[in-house]
Design a protein around this nucleic acid. Sequence first.
DNA 1: ATGAAAGCGCTAACAT
DNA 2: ATGTTAGCGCTTTCAT
Lengths: 353, 353
Amino acid sequence: MRPSIKQVANLAGVSIATVSRLLNKPGSVSAETAEKIHRSIEQLGFRPNFTGRNLRAGSSRTVGVVVPTLSNTVFAQCLQGIELAARELDYSVMFTTTEYLPEDESAAVELLLGHRVDGVILTVADAGANATLDLLERERIPFVLTYNQLAQPAAGQAAGERASVSVDNRAAACDAVAHLIQLGHRRIQMLSGRFNASDRAIQRYYGYLDAMRAAGLDPLPAIEVERHTLTAAADYQQMMADPVQRPTALFCSNDLLAMSAMRDLRALGLRVPRDISVMGFDGIPVGALMEPVLASVVQPSEQIGDVALRTLVAAIERSAAAAAAGGAPVTAARHVLPHAVREGGSAASPVQA
Amino acid sequence: MRPSIKQVANLAGVSIATVSRLLNKPGSVSAETAEKIHRSIEQLGFRPNFTGRNLRAGSSRTVGVVVPTLSNTVFAQCLQGIELAARELDYSVMFTTTEYLPEDESAAVELLLGHRVDGVILTVADAGANATLDLLERERIPFVLTYNQLAQPAAGQAAGERASVSVDNRAAACDAVAHLIQLGHRRIQMLSGRFNASDRAIQRYYGYLDAMRAAGLDPLPAIEVERHTLTAAADYQQMMADPVQRPTALFCSNDLLAMSAMRDLRALGLRVPRDISVMGFDGIPVGALMEPVLASVVQPSEQIGDVALRTLVAAIERSAAAAAAGGAPVTAARHVLPHAVREGGSAASPVQA
DNA sequence: ATGAAAGCGCTAACAT
DNA sequence: ATGTTAGCGCTTTCAT
């Protein structure tokens, strides 16, 4: 066992209370005692044990994070933003993955709650009807959603709205598709990750519909594909093979998908953007390094993480204060961060047929 | 405060010990008592508090992870591998970043140790002389290095060698450069991340030297660049502008650097691979989606994470057993995982001058 | 300014 | 099979 406050106290010839005081409010200890204690700490290599402290305090200065995967840079950057901000605010981060399995979400959160994290940041498959979020709410654990965008609070739901940090997915997708339309595209196909794994994908499809309709164009049903792998799908291949049927532009619900699509198109002998334009969503940094540059709509992932963490910590401290005072209502904010269309060589005006 | 074992015991009309038993070895509790307790747990929404358990047990079933950044996919994937394996083995992950600042490494580890993690997985700037590792060793906290490759244990060092999981960076780099040589390149320049931020980069430079010398070619000093941004460096620009002086191939110490380099080369009006070949290191997945495909040497990052976690857990459990028995020597393994050259269009035979 | 003591939630002897 | 009790490391009254 590592040295505890007790050994330090013994060695310094004081009580454990005094050592604790020195650690917490150094002002309340006489200079010479402090000196003695510091020496003992040094000598023993003592390091305060957060477990003891947390048990006593009932809080851990630790936040839990649940993301679908780290294989998608978007979430890695978000986590990066969370960690940086957490470190600045003196919080620690415990994190976990769901691999896009909605059924793993609650287990992940349960585990985090077992560790008594003070709050949770999470991205879920569907924030609409989600047992995990209900659980969090029931247990009064502060949480912030990232990427998920909340619909209006359900009728009859408490004033306590849920907190989220995201871009306006629908508007962002609409802007992206509008960009394609403005370039002259009329037959635009949307390629999407599974709707049931991502409510964002659905919002983005709505954005696609908005843009198409606003331009008086016929929207097509989205093609949903597994993860970021594409489409040995026969009908897809066939559609692409036929220059008449083929869309002149592809709008993809995320950049990884867009990049995979571009590779697959090349394999089919199609050139981007000459034969077909491709636009992504996310604006991951590597997209800007490619040639042609991947046109996309950029969401500020690291900032999403940053804002989420700060929002969460604010909620944690507010709820702690409220518990101390008397149940003040915890209000939550829906942060909508700005997105931006990134033009790129992958999206150009269609060649006139 | 959330319900504790005590409330459950009260409600069920049993002692807290019985509740604890049910939680830990369910066999030792009678069926009807178990039934009663389960009902109480259900009713109260009780969830065991790991903090209490950990304090008592002196271990946390949590591992700490320290990586330079999550902006580089390589580390994100490694962390992904760690998390997956940890979840499988029922461990939790607390993680932190150093932003490549060696001076932040010890603070990161100190924090983790404050949380009483059972072990640490880390990637440091320089594993050779590293106060943080010495600290870990002194405190007898099991740890595993990732990406860092250990040199021979220093003379007089304890039999307890340090554990690491990596590829053979030197051999891998040598293979990469040998591939370029085999394509016909003779003037090969290495572009590297800062040596003082990454001992891997140094090993990779040695690999470059090995390959060049083995082929009887003149190695050049590496050009070190900041992070993954390149080279407004005047001398670099100048070298590249001159078709005679210009190397026919660039070997980059990581893929992000290689991709940035390719972008910069394009900006200079050079075409890859026609005017110059580029080879990276890491084999990040997006590299394979580009056109041309980024030639690279692939290291299995997710597997590195997986193996690191399993190695660490083995060490943790071994050291716990040793503590119980009597100080058995803790042996550590240096895992060297296989790398593979990934050929790609970015590296082709040079056009004869 | 300092100490004594209680207690946070839990587990593990040690009874019974 | 179950209860009693001590104690993990720490903070925090309450005394002095």
